[in-house]
Design a protein around this nucleic acid. Sequence first.
DNA 1: TAGGCCATCTGGTCCT
DNA 2: AGGACCAGATGGCCTA
Length: 336
Amino acid sequence: SSGTSETFSEAEGMAELVSPPWADELGPKAEPREEDGAGAFGPGPGLNRERDSAEEEEEEEEEEEEDGEKPKRRGPKKKKMTKARLERFRARRVKANARERTRMHGLNDALDNLRRVMPCYSKTQKLSKIETLRLARNYIWALSEVLETGQTPEGKSFVEMLCKGLSQPTSNLVAGCLQLGPQTLFLEKHEEKSAACEAALGGHPFSYQSPGLPSPPYGSLETHVLHLKPPPAFKGLVEAPFGAHPPDCSTPPYEGPLTPPLSISGNFALKQDGSPELEKPYGFVAHYPGVGLAGAHGHGPPFQGAVPRYEIPLDVSYEPFPPHVAGPQLSTIFNE
DNA sequence: TAGGCCATCTGGTCCT
DNA sequence: AGGACCAGATGGCCTA
């Protein structure tokens, strides 16, 4: 199932003719990150151009010999890797590499955008990709619970939800960002994560306003979660009370399916004041009136009923689906 | 030094 | 044919 006979032979040709020498001569394939496109014709395959032609001839001869001596192969006849074909293939490969790089950069950009809207965004201490995704999941889940119950969770619970399944360093980071003393989350290595999570939080009176700590980027709990009232369309969509579906965090996180209440409308209602790390101006208006926010860790006026702004990078295409659309979709998802 | 994380290259597969 | 997506392989960097 390898497509046309030509692609088959080209792939083989690459394996036979090109890959080993390239790999040896190029050493580490990973070049220092370059501007897109530059790498495509950079020090990669191009380094070998001169030696290629000579060796190609050799290999082609060998190939012909093989054809003569060995029993005939089944399947489509292998096309010769002529110089022209090889060059075409290489050009294609180089282009594909460039595209792949660009694609991965896009993916990383998206992850960065995701990091920026996470509760603890820091340029200096970036969450890893996997931790970003885990925290995002927890964050969505936590906010879903808020939407569902319409109640601000106890601060401790909020942090518990956010840190479920996260690594210890990330948990500490989250706690620190939310002004829970990071020391309270220093977990014993031998502890189960879930137990550790509970224990670390449970033994200490939770406070988001620990006076001794530096201001976190995202401030207090109220910066994140405020009595969000789910729109009528979502009433009854989920039945779990707040905290009823904690994600399993006792295992290496997130192996199993997660089924948080899906009372998500595609909108959060957060204000991200007070984050010295946040550079880009975001512009996004939450769709739900009545969703309020307090000023971040005491700075600025508390939310007075004006439409809160949730900031999304402008370069992010964002398609919030309105409740009348999201409702059925979420119902479908939830019922699956 | 081992392990985690990352960027890149690569070949396979699917789709247009 | 060519692009998008994916997963495996590889090597560099960093930290405990």
